[in-house]
Design a protein around this nucleic acid. Structure first.
Length: 425
RNA sequence: GGAGAGGUGGCUGAGUGGUCGAAAGCGAACGACUCGAAAUCGUUUAAUAGGUAACUAUUCGUGGGUUCGAAUCCCACCCUCUCCGCCA
């Protein structure tokens, strides 16, 4: 959520900064509503003030006189009643306006950072660096072909259980998934992160707090009997872990690493990535998350990105670092670095981690503050995948494939997986 | 799921219709004393919105209602605790 004061006092600059996202945002409507609401606020405030004075007067009068039914008192009460009616009428108007305003403001995305490359869509993203040598060879198999031949997972059977875009991991496939989760968690915990295992179901307030609601209700699964949703990312429960808190600045930065299953409806992605582990309704992810002092979030952003990168390096997977352009930024993010892993079968880099600095956008929505110079100030939140497990497995299968049909397990993962190769039965 | 108890400031906890935004204690901050510290004494110490400020309003789990006036009464919901049932 953007600062309401800023929207009110500097609408032109707000519109300009938002327009970097490549869309037109109209703030004037919000401000018209805000002006109307403010007039009513002032009216209510003075009515309440009068009514309060009157009530106190009545209290005193009753205390003084024995007969509580004097004509004077009745008149005073009548007057009070008039106040009450007026106030409740105005409050009704105020409530409606406030709801409209809140809804409009909650639908505004974060400001893109001035450092982010300006651009319209993903074609304008900027490659910052590459690491490792991409495997390029003819006759390379896709990870789903490898997975099928090694009997690591089954999507057909999973369609029977659920529907398309679900997968069951089998035998070594399941073991590899487990190994990757443990491997990543251990590294991040050793690196100063506190491990968190949050609930997988989250309420609407949590989704609103991190920016998924109200705008993206279509992208999450909802439980029909409760105000609960299947969490699309651990970013949601971690943000709300500290919702409505004022955090002691001495505790900052607070760094969490969380393994969680993630559920996404993938509405509008029909026909894309229908095979394999790339785009599923349910996938596992190890997420990194920082709550930090507002003055230190730029540094933190570099750090969280390099923490995610360290996993790819340890697994010896070729990747590149991409600076997401203003038009391609996620709703809550001001700046995002994507890590994209090399997938030889499709001869391209695919997103495996997205590291975002949300500044105070989520903190304001979730009311998470810290004390700076004795003043309560919204802190900054950052999140980054460290990494998406399914896509990591796909990358390992494709990059580690051998001509004899087996797959080489990255050395760092061997202690977790228990052997050097995945071999055909 | 059934029965009961309860949700008050950073924390503990009083307050059952009228200067109550809320006693007291703890904690914290500042000052005095001290070479320094502890102890002691004094002062201060909730948030949000509007305003340069004085100030005004709102907030006692949440949302409604009664009343001139609600932390206090009524209704609904949420949450916590205890007992019972069920269950991994």
């Amino acid at each position: 959520m953007l600062d309401q004061k800023l929207i009110r006092e500097n609408p032109t600059s707000v519109e300009e900064r938002l327009s970097l996202r490549g869309k037109v945002f109209n703030i004037s409507q919000i401000n018209e509503l805000t002006i109307k609401k403010k007039e009513i606020d002032i009216e209510i405030c003075s009515l309440q003030s009068e009514s309060k004075k009157l009530s106190k007067l009545i209290g005193k009068e009753i205390g003084k006189s024995q007969n509580n039914n004097s004509l004077e008192l009745d008149n005073l009460k009548k007057k009070g009643n008039e106040y009450r009616i007026k106030i409740s009428e105005s409050e009704e108007k105020q409530r409606i306006l406030d709801k409209q305003i809140q809804n409009e403001i909650c639908n505004l995305p974060n400001f893109p950072s001035n450092d982010a490359p300006i651009g319209k869509d993903q074609n304008n993203n900027v490659e910052l660096k590459t690491w490792g040598d991409p495997l390029i060879r003819d006759n390379l198999k896709s990870h789903w072909e490898i997975g099928e031949s090694l009997n690591l997972f089954d999507s057909i059977k999973s369609t029977k259980i659920s529907k398309s875009r679900f997968i069951s991991l089998i035998g070594n496939g399941a073991k590899l998934e487990r190994a990757l989760i443990n491997f990543m968690l251990d590294i991040h915990v050793n690196n100063g992160y506190l491990e968190l295992m949050p609930p997988a179901l989250v309420n609407s307030e949590s989704l609103t707090g991190s920016g998924q609601l109200p705008k993206f209700a279509n992208e999450s699964f909802k439980c029909s009997n409760d105000d609960l949703w299947l969490s699309p990312t651990a970013e949601v429960p971690i943000t709300s872990f500290h919702r409505n808190e004022i955090i002691d600045p001495k505790q900052l930065p607070i760094k969490y690493v969380a393994y969680s299953p993630c559920f996404r409806r993938e509405a509008g992605s029909y026909g894309r990535d229908t095979k394999g582990l790339i785009r599923l309704h349910q996938f596992n992810k190890v997420e990194l998350y920082w709550f930090c002092d507002p003055s230190k979030s730029l540094e933190a952003h570099q750090k969280i990105t390099s923490d995610a990168e360290s996993i790819l390096k340890k697994l010896n997977l070729p990747y590149r670092l991409v600076d997401i352009c203003t038009g391609d930024l996620g709703f809550s993010s001001s700046r995002t670095f994507d890590l994209e892993v090399w997938l030889p079968s499709s001869k391209c880099y695919r997103e495996i981690s997205s590291c975002s600095n949300c500044l105070d956008f989520q903190a304001r929505r979730s009311s998470i503050r810290t004390k700076i110079d004795k003043k309560n100030t919204y802190l900054h939140t950052l999140n980054g995948s460290g990494l998406a497990i399914g896509r990591t497995m796909a990358a390992i299968l494709e990059n580690g494939q051998q001509s004899n049909g087996s797959v080489k397990i990255p050395d760092a993962l061997v202690p977790y997986f228990g052997s050097n190769f995945l071999k055909p039965a």
